[in-house]
Design a protein around this nucleic acid. Sequence first.
DNA 1: TCCATCCGTCTTAGTTCAAT
DNA 2: ATTGAACTAAGACGGATGGA
Length: 269
Amino acid sequence: MRSRKICCEKQDEVFHSGQSQIVVIHNGLLRVKTGDCTLNVVAGCGIYFSQGDYLLEYTPIDGQYRASVIEFDNEFVSKLLQKHSELLMSFPKVANIQSGLFSFTLNILIKQTLSGMKTLEEQSYPDAIMRLKYEEMLILLLHGEQGEHLYALLSQLTNKSSERLRRFMERHYLKEWKLTDYAQEFGASLTTFKELFNEYYGISPRAWISERRILHAHKLLLTSKMSIVDVAMESGFSSQSYFTQSYRRRFGTTPSKVRTGDEQVTIGK
DNA sequence: TCCATCCGTCTTAGTTCAAT
DNA sequence: ATTGAACTAAGACGGATGGA
């Protein structure tokens, strides 16, 4: 559990969120893309990220991009859901989650909580008080406009089978396995595996794996000196040919043009 | 009756390879 | 490194099966 502030210049980034987190934008614009979902978050708004990979585009306004990040570990979320189970009983069970994201505007109560966190950070109070602030923040969001969506996302974190699936996929998404191999290694029939996958991620296994691989490849293109063939192979593509096709379909340009800086990718599909 | 799982069929996406 | 075409595998979906 920790919070931190970020400031940066205009840039694109493939961002891996190791645990769920809330980002509050103070200045500038943040565009977040995952799967079929793109969200624009402006100053005065926040966004919740589940664990996973996201394509981020930071746009400073008046030369500045500033945001605060609050990270939550699964144990904290699990305890919060247990502690407030009575309060949360009225929430319906959401079967299909479309994305691991949702954005929200900062109402007066959330602003006050953030302000309280800031004050606590500047002074030496016990951590337990800050944890209460984190709880307060999540409970306020749970009772906001998209509370049911957030509840579904948080419940998912503490669901053993979906958590097992998430860990399994994070470990193996770069493997050159057929879907039947994934199912077999996971220990379920192909149909059960696909249905569990759809329930957890809201998209098909193949679509999710493709998106993760293309983001991994994009990150390697921007941050390494590997050849395009090596980037393709390292990212689980069977050939450079197919990698180029997929990259073009996903980003509207080819890997070599992005590598040489001739073109930049845009996040929206 | 409900739920988890499996099966069959049609559609869509991924892979390979040759040409440039 | 990229593109296009042919081939193959995976996905979507509805219905069937079997156990609790």
